[in-house]
Design a protein around this nucleic acid. Structure first.
Length: 552
RNA sequence: GGCCUGUUGGUGAAGUGGCUUAACACACUGCCCUCUCAAGGCAGCAUUCACGGAUUCGAAUUCCGUACAGGCUACCA
């Protein structure tokens, strides 16, 4: 086709597209950002629910843009209208809000490079397609599904690469007359790239995470515009990331094999290339098969994003976990920088795992515990309260009524250099501090404590009668020792071990009895602190309850 | 079938040719501390980096082959 014929074809195919690519280039000028600033984007497709993997890539997008004073934007990739699900878009934005992974630009966040929704950009894509046709770099293809399937079969039999390329691309060099005829017949068509590549040549690609990779050049005439006039992912990616001036495309690993196509597309379109960073999928070792597999919604509850909220895993702790997946050296840094915020850590692509990143639940739990241990009692209260409001209204109400009182419990052993690590989730708090609120204690009582041991209530009652709650912890313990010795118990476990037959037990046993009667559990934070907060009346009340319980 | 990528302990992993008799963390086991837990301290936990070969004075690190795993091979993203 001559240049003139191509122009005619372009106008024939896209009569309503009046804006040119030059118009769009002017509309979306280069961003005014400082040197090294990264522009990243999260480009979900509203075809299913958000999962951990999505969160991970969005998190990485956010973190890199933030630390370079760049921009992180949200773009809805909804070119496949068939697979759209109801509420899909709303779900994406609400998850980003819930998990505090907030773009500073994009769909529902504003910005100058919109619309940030691909289904609203059809005219833009078509303007570029029209230009490509004018230049002879793309062409309409009228092949039917059947014709394509036949080619596929033939290729499979001959064991050659599958796809429309080279001599298989039969509509590549149709004359203008032929095209007009097919159009007149009402034949449907797609627009394909007239790939200039040669598969015998190699290209080297540098990925920010994976490093150097070699591929054969892309030579398939990939579909750019579908029958319905909407772009394929590949084409939309090239146009959008160029026009929105993305500097780093951070996306899932499943895209690496499209890299030769994407690079070619940028070349053909005359765009400045973007940098790519491909994140390995989150994997898990299957308990049954022992194989490493992609994390799955069915088998792994942590995969779904709801899990974190429902179980009361703090968002910040999840960020911590995402950070440890994103950069392998983050974990050590966090452990050694107890007073620093996650934003002070410098993320870098070469500290990112190349292979699959395995999900380690035990590590998540531990991270959560560390997170809680660094929070003050007041903070624990506020966050737990917020969570309970949504998931356990009854408890929220109790927290509200007992606010100042329960914060005292949350603060036990918090001031030292080695804070307690006993809570991992908000949902643990109610159980862990069940002794702090009378009404909960009454209900739960000693039901959770199913030890066979019975304790001497008379002895403990006598002990409580003489107790002085105004003294220091040390004085208290010395008194307790004295009391133990007076009543035939050893003053320390060591002494007891030396001659067990001489004693009824040791101080620890008295404390244990006391602990069980007061808290209903054999483990608790510092006993004396609990007693001080509870006060004598409550303690006596618990003793009464224990009597009733043990008489049953 | 073709094209890519990966494979270090129970787990997550550090490591990019000699400083590695493989860091660190989680888990586990034992001891210590101790009123119970938790935390903390100490010790133990891969003589070896999927396997085979090559290069080198020297390899977990480079190259080739094999096995296994994952991804892509759509008018889905």
């Amino acid at each position: 086709m001559t240049e003139k014929e191509r122009l005619e074809l372009a106008n024939l195919l896209f009569p309503n597209i009046t804006k040119t690519r030059e118009d769009y280039e002017k509309m979306y000028p280069e961003r005014d950002l400082e040197e090294g600033a990264m522009v990243t984007r999260y480009g979900p497709s509203p075809t299913g629910s958000v999962h951990l993997g999505n969160l991970l890539s969005a998190f990485a997008d956010m973190v890199y843009a933030k630390q370079t004073n760049g921009s992180f934007y949200l773009r809805i990739e909804d070119t496949d209208q068939k697979r759209m699900i109801d509420g899909g878009i709303e779900n994406i934005t609400s998850v980003l809000h819930d998990f505090d992974i907030l773009p500073n630009e994009g769909y529902s966040f504003g910005g100058n490079y919109g619309p940030y929704q691909q289904s609203k950009r059809t005219d833009i894509y078509q303007a570029y397609i029209k230009d490509l046709i004018k230049q002879g770099l793309a062409y309409p293809c009228f092949m039917t599904e059947e014709e394509q399937n036949n080619i596929k079969e033939e290729q499979a039999i001959n064991k050659v690469k599958i796809g429309i390329y080279g001599t298989y691309a039969v509509d590549r060099d149709l004359s203008l007359e032929e095209v007009k005829e097919k159009l007149a017949n009402g034949e449907e068509y797609v627009i394909r790239l007239k790939s200039p590549g040669n598969a015998n040549k190699q290209i080297e690609v540098v990925d920010c995470i994976k490093g150097k990779m070699k591929f054969p050049e892309h030579d398939v005439d990939t579909v750019l515009l579908k029958k319905d006039g909407t772009p394929t992912y590949h084409f939309a990616h090239a146009i959008d990331d160029h026009l929105m001036h993305t500097t780093h495309v951070i996306r899932g690993d499943e895209w690496v094999s499209s890299l030769p196509l994407h690079i070619q597309l940028f070349e053909v379109l005359g765009f400045k290339p973007v940098k790519y960073a491909h994140i390995a999928p989150i994997t898990i070792k299957d308990q049954e098969t022992g194989n490493i597999r992609k994390i799955s919604k069915r088998k792994d509850p942590w995969f779904g994003v709801k899990y974190y909220d429902e179980n009361g895993i703090p968002i910040e702790a999840l960020h911590l976990y995402l950070a440890t997946i994103t950069n392998t050296n983050f974990e050590e840094w966090y452990l050694n920088n107890t007073d620093k915020d996650i934003s002070e850590f410098e993320f870098s692509f070469d500290k990112q795992a190349i292979g699959g990143t395995s999900f380690d639940e035990a590590k998540l739990v531990n991270l959560c515990k560390t997170y809680f241990s660094r929070k003050s009692g007041e903070e624990v209260y506020n966050e737990t309260y917020r969570w309970a409001l949504k998931h356990d209204e009854e408890y929220a109400k109790l927290l509200e009524e007992n606010k100042e009182f329960i914060i005292q419990f949350f603060n036990i052993e918090k001031d030292g250099p080695r804070p307690r690590k006993d809570i991992a989730k908000y949902s643990d708090v109610k159980e862990e501090f069940s002794y702090a609120i009378d009404s909960i204690f009454k209900k739960e009582n000693y039901s959770k404590y199913d030890g066979n041991k019975t304790y001497d209530v008379e002895l403990i009652t006598e002990y409580v009668e003489q107790i002085d709650l105004s003294v220091t912890n040390e004085e208290w313990f010395n008194k307790t020792k004295e009391f133990a010795i007076e009543h035939g118990y050893a003053g320390s476990p060591k002494e007891y071990k030396k001659a067990p037959e001489e004693y009824k037990g040791h101080v620890g046993d008295i404390c244990e009895a006391l602990r069980v009667m007061i808290t209903g559990r054999t483990k608790s934070p510092d006993l004396f602190s609990i007693m001080k907060i509870l006060g004598k009346d409550r303690i006596n009340n618990r003793l009464e309850q224990y009597k009733e319980y043990s008489n049953q």
